[in-house]
Amino acid sequence: MKLSISNLEQLSGVSIHTIRIWERRYHALEPQRSSGGTRFYTDQDLKRLLNIVSLQQAGVKISQACSLSAEEMDELLAQDLKTSISSDANHEFYISQLLKAGVEYDEPSFTTLLDRCINDCGMLDSYKEVIFPLMQRLGLMWRLDHICPAHEHFISAIVRQKLMSAINSIPIANQKETTWLLFLPEDEGHDIPLLFANFILRSHGVKVVYLGERVPMDSIVDAQNTIHAENLLFFMVRQRPIKEAADYLAELARTFTGSNIYLAGNGKLIGELQLPANVTWFSSISSLTQILNGENG
């Protein structure tokens, strides 16, 4: 796939200016040129850039990170893959077997295993200890070329179906008066964490208005003008430039001054942001459940 430098910025969170500096100073990437002379990048360039960012965030000097060969980066990623193995044998069994069924596109086996996991562990622990680590491992495997994007789409689709089924099984009668508005920004399409938050909130008897993925700001405003939700919850999952994320948060904070705004997702990104006064970071699932348990009390 051919990618522009703007595509790289959007997918990696590294600004165009920084990408060009890394290319010029450290030869981080070597873009190709089309027959018309236009520079473009490939999936391999994107993976290399993501790896460089990860190494930099781990404390490796940018000059050293950029100097590593693809083989050396793969060795480091392989180490990360090993550390993703769960210390709990039961959880690791489910992760590894679900992964095996997923890469074989074996829907019956995958579904049976996931149902068994949910029955054994409950939806909350299944998500925290199996589903979420599974999705993280898929990302690492993609960067090592061990899987293709179709595997992730296949697995995500089944997980999404299970979450929706669990949500639909929760009665909506006798909901509390407190309302939560859930959405993803216009450039976010990873809705599985948001669906899980929907499940948790509804399990606590909370009224949820779920807008889903890729919601424009004016649509959020329109919904809020009607429902007047006390709480807004959204996720920033993909990496993006810090300024872009900060500007979006600032706009939300100005627009919804009378509501509590909760943010979850990419901890490395969120940890670098200066959050507005009415924005709170949910760094873990327990942060959400603690608030809900406090409301129940």
Rank of each mutant, 00 (worst) to 15 (best):
P133L: 08
L134C: 11
M135W: 07
M135L: 09
Q136V: 02
Q136K: 09
Q136A: 13
R137P: 04
R137C: 06
L138S: 03
L138E: 07
L138K: 01
G139D: 05
G139P: 11
L140Y: 10
L140M: 09
M141L: 12
M141E: 15
M141Y: 08
W142T: 15
D145N: 14
D145I: 07
H146I: 04
C148P: 09
A150I: 10
H151D: 09
E152T: 02
F154N: 01
F154S: 12
F154P: 11
I155C: 10
I155Y: 08
I155H: 06
A157S: 04
I158D: 07
V159N: 06
R160V: 08
Q161N: 01
Q161L: 09
K162W: 00
K162H: 02
L163H: 02
M164Q: 08
M164E: 13
M164A: 12
M164H: 00
A166S: 05
I170M: 08
I170H: 03
I172P: 03
I172Y: 02
A173G: 00
N174R: 09
Q175L: 08
Q175S: 07
K176A: 11
E177R: 13
E177M: 04
T178R: 14
T178K: 00
T178C: 01
T178N: 13
T179R: 01
T179S: 11
W180L: 11
W180E: 00
W180G: 01
L181G: 06
L181Q: 06
L182D: 15
F183S: 09
F183D: 00
P185Q: 07
P185T: 03
E186A: 12
D187A: 11
G189H: 15
G189M: 15
H190M: 02
H190C: 13
H190K: 13
D191G: 09
I192Q: 13
I192R: 14
I192D: 10
I192L: 15
P193G: 12
P193F: 00
L195I: 03
A197R: 02
N198D: 11
N198E: 10
I200R: 00
L201R: 08
S203F: 15
S203K: 14
H204E: 00
G205D: 01
K207M: 12
K207C: 14
V208I: 13
V208Y: 14
V208E: 12
V208D: 05
V209T: 02
Y210W: 03
G212M: 15
G212V: 11
E213H: 06
V215R: 07
P216W: 02
P216Y: 06
M217H: 09
M217N: 13
M217F: 14
D218K: 10
S219N: 13
S219V: 10
I220C: 14
I220T: 01
I220N: 12
D222G: 13
D222R: 15
Q224V: 08
N225Q: 12
I227A: 01
I227Y: 07
H228Y: 10
H228I: 08
A229W: 04
A229P: 11
A229G: 12
N231A: 04
N231P: 09
L232F: 05
L232S: 04
L233W: 03
F235I: 07
F235D: 01
M236A: 00
V237R: 04
V237T: 06
R238A: 08
R238Q: 12
Q239H: 11
Q239V: 07
R240N: 08
P241Q: 00
P241R: 01
P241H: 04
I242E: 03
I242W: 01
I242N: 03
E244T: 11
A245C: 02
